[in-house]
Amino acid sequence: MPIIEVDNLTYYYPGSSKPALANISLNVEKGDFLLITGPSGSGKSTLVRTFNGLIPHLFGGRFEGKVLVKGKDTRYCSVAELSKTVGIVFQDPENQILTLSVEREIAFGLENLGLPRKVIRERMEKVLKDLNIVHLRERIPIELSVGEQQKVIVASIIAMMPEVLVFDEPTAHMDPLSALKFLELVHELNKRGYTVVVVEHRLDLVAKYANKIIILNNGRIVVKGEPRNILPSDIAEECGVDVPRYIRFFKRISNLAKISRYPISDEEAAETLKEVLGYGRSY
């Protein structure tokens, strides 16, 4: 049984005559690393909001088809209950801040899970370290820089250890090195068994970790598959996906040099470049 199953979902926000999602069908299996991308306004965040029932419960609107989380229809489960399985970090960190200290922000969700003090302490120390925000622990979240806030919110969800971790443009405000490290951390979590869904534009840093990618456009899934096959496709380019520069580069020279397969990481891109230019693997 898929951990999340979206079955022919069409959704209209209240008062809207154009669907934000149209005929979406999608399975997220246990252990998947699903990457969702697509142009601005294509429905990425809307789709993510259906994974813990915020849509339809909080947003209302017209909801056709269904979303099942571990086999349960989200229409008949509360957001609170669904959130135990699916932890979501939404876009725009500031709107998600609930408390007056970074430590409280992280402890809040853990206390709601009814965890013992000792466990809360341990998890807190771990995520503060993992997100490199130990120095911010006593600060007031609303008085942090936007990137710092983003790290705090991400930490607060990771600490809860839900089976499915969903991040909506988590690195949008992280500096490049933080973004790289964060995505490595998500990869680690995925390897340890967490199911991961990430909405991202920084495909150069994340594509290599995903086993599945979907591209949304105008509320529809225009293509799904493996990142290695999808990203070099013309459809990705036509939708305005920020295809990694190295893939675009090799596409541009593909009539001059034979490209055996398109790379999906920096390392592979370097190998491909050496091949193209006739530099041996060990020269």
């Binding site: 090195l177 933080s178 150069d204 990694p244 520069r245 190295y246 891109a269 470049l273 230019l277």
Partner: peptide
């Protein structure tokens, strides 16, 4: 500066050409 190289310089660096 917690910067990483932009994509093209990164490719150049890894290629060591």
């Amino acid at each position: 500066a917690s910067l990483i190289l932009p994509q093209i310089p990164r490719l150049v660096k890894y290629s060591e050409i």
